[in-house]
Nucleic acid binder design. Structure first.
Lengths: 188, 188
DNA sequence: AACGATACGGAGCGTTGTTCCGTTTAGCAA
DNA sequence: TTGCTAAACGGAACAACGCTCCGTATCGTT
């Protein structure tokens, strides 16, 4: 059998995912583990039996959306008129995702080892997609070469940190400027 | 008298600033307060008698450099050939400052209230300078209008987070792209 | 020399993520 | 139905963090 887990364990895993999603929504991704356990009505030990650490819980909650973002990215080159257009559409999608998950962008670029696996999950899934879009746009002569996909993704992620704090901070606009800056332009 | 403090207190304040600077350099701005106290050879209580919290200690350590950055910014419009050139020079200066202070950019955009005063100090001192450069460049027709100085500064700060982690991440390049994106360009 | 104001040290508190282990329970076999 | 065992659970306990508090030591003045 693929699922050797006990019924209560399987049920609790789902309860935990739902509780975590709810708490992340209301209190941000940085919500204390205790709060999530309380919301789910289980002890903390239960969380750590299902997910090795906080980062993995976050991954589990958002896995589907990350996968969907990557999947869409792979189809955009065919759907959009130019590679650059595909890139901008995909980046907008990614930014929308990050901006609506309070604290997620911050967790992504956390310098501690605590969220390393979260970081890696995003990198492994999204950087290749970004790379393909970037390469196509370079080949089409729409943007300058020499921009690393990983670096660009992290830059976009970083720009999405702290959204909602001050209304003067507009992550979407800044990401737009960043992508606009990619275009071939006369010598600075 | 301007200085009503006891001699040992004045001495300890300098010792603390030196120790903090050294620890920040080797372990980053996030180094535990205990480490700084140990390095200075004083108790933790002494730190908190001289600085109300960690953020103020960080401010005290970097105050001179922030002030200098603001000061230079005010002279650049006269020194550089165009407002846009002045802007790029100043931004490079700011990025150099942030990039060499491990963890400072991260602390700056921390969403917690803990580093609020640090954030505010940077904002109060540097945003007006950035605003003047931005306004001049807009008026000269070199860049598009509608970019908020505070937002831009935060964006630049955000892009400087996590430098040194992965060599593929080049904050200077990304900030360069961001500033390049400011230029007037044909409708997206 | 003595005394009061000033400054000091570090134990201790509240908050995190994470671990550990005694207790409970699901699922199966008799 | 009743036992039994492996699986799962709950939450006390630990380490690391920023910060507070108060008994003690020291400075500087009388």
């Amino acid at each position: 059998m693929a699922d050797r887990k006990r019924a209560d364990a399987r049920r609790n895993e789902q309860v935990l995912l739902d509780a975590a999603a709810a708490v992340f929504l209301s209190s941000g991704v940085d919500a204390p583990v205790r709060d999530i356990a309380a919301k789910a009505g289980v002890g903390m030990g239960t969380i750590y039996r299902h997910f090795p650490n906080r980062a993995e819980l976050v991954i589990a909650v958002y896995r589907h959306q990350v996968d969907a973002c990557a999947e869409v990215g792979r189809t955009l080159l065919a759907k959009e008129p130019t590679p650059y257009a595909a890139l901008t559409v995909w980046v907008d999608l990614f930014v929308d995702f990050l901006v609506t998950k309070h604290g997620l962008a911050a967790a992504l670029q956390s310098e501690t080892a605590r969220f390393e696996t979260l970081h890696d999950y995003f990198v492994d899934n999204l950087v290749p997609v970004c790379g393909a879009l970037l390469d196509a746009a370079v080949e089409a002569g729409e943007i300058q070469p020499g921009v690393d996909p990983y670096g660009l993704m992290r830059g976009i992620g970083n720009l999405c940190v702290g959204v909602g704090g001050d209304p003067r901070y507009d992550a979407r606009q800044l990401v737009g400027l960043l992508i606009a800056g990619l275009r071939r332009h006369p010598a600075t």
